[in-house]
């Protein structure tokens, strides 16, 4: 494939994730599938959640009302793959970058563990390998060869299962196609989700599922902490008005301005 064609390809692609909070049941299948896909280590005691290493976390968010008016939603939080990623700006080692298709990468051997990116990320999407990775004995046999395991002292995060993109693209090239079809590349979490609350696809393709959903659900779509201007690529949908202000931790008097829709 020529240089020009490659360019065209990247102009036609930007991958985004849409998570329908009202459909998420908080079951945790996405987290386990992600862990299995990306060879994530498990220590024997992971109850200190500040030290626990996950690429995808499900937050349980309540409306802070007393019993029995309490309501709960579950909010899966992968890396937001921001269009203006703060983590990339602060990295002194160029270990993380935004690529043409919208994915914020992380190059482990280049990272020297300063953790500026972790401090900068407003979503806490980045995690640090405080220890040598450990796996339950024998489960190394279940390693996914497409994803390298990470050493102690580096930062890691969700890659939108970039290796799955590479597989899909290789297949497309072998078949002589220029574009990927909708649904040909989706990350492990979206694949596993038993209620299909996670949509994934190319937002530059107006006919893709994500484009359609974002159009249809426009009044209920928002992104986390939009006020920081990092332009996340992960969109959330909730038709309940209390959800977005709770997720963004807005002040009481700001509530009125804050509705469940993007500016």
């Amino acid at each position: 494939m020529g240089h020009e064609e490659k360019e065209n390809w990247s102009h036609a692609e930007k991958y985004v994730m849409v998570i329908d909070i009202d459909k998420c049941t908080g079951c945790g299948a996405c987290v386990v599938a992600c862990s299995q896909e990306n060879n994530i280590p498990v220590r024997t005691d992971e109850t200190d959640k500040y030290m626990s290493l996950n690429w995808l976390v499900i937050y349980r968010v309540t409306n802070a009302q007393p019993f029995p008016k309490t309501k709960v939603v579950y909010v899966p939080r992968p890396c937001m793959h921001c269009d203006d990623p703060i983590c990339v700006h602060v990295c002194p080692a160029s270990a993380t970058d935004k690529d043409a298709k919208g994915i914020v990468s992380q190059i482990y051997p280049r990272c020297f563990g300063c953790r500026y990116c972790m401090a900068a990320c407003p979503y806490h999407a980045r995690v640090f390998n405080w220890y040598d990775p450990v796996y339950p004995k024998g489960t190394e046999r279940g390693f996914n060869p497409d994803v390298s395991t990470r050493m102690r002292g580096v930062v890691e995060k969700c890659s939108f299962c970039n290796h799955r993109y590479q597989h899909a693209r290789d297949k497309a090239i072998a078949e002589g196609r220029v574009c990927l079809e909708d649904g040909e590349y989706i990350p492990a979490c979206a694949e596993a989700c038993p209620t299909k609350a996670i949509y994934f696809g190319n937002i530059k393709d107006p006919n893709s599922q994500v484009s359609r959903i974002l159009r249809e659900e426009r009044p209920h779509v928002f992104r986390l902490l939009e006020k920081y201007g990092s332009e996340p690529s992960v969109y959330y949908i909730s038709r309940q008005d209390w959800v977005r202000p709770r997720l963004d931790w807005v002040l009481e008097e700001e509530h009125k301005k804050y509705k469940n829709s993007m500016k």
Partner: peptide, 12 residues
């Protein structure tokens, strides 16, 4: 249509 967390942990 998808798997549950138990099923997803089958390999472990």
């Amino acid at each position: 249509r998808g798997v549950c967390p138990l099923g997803a942990a089958s390999v472990q």
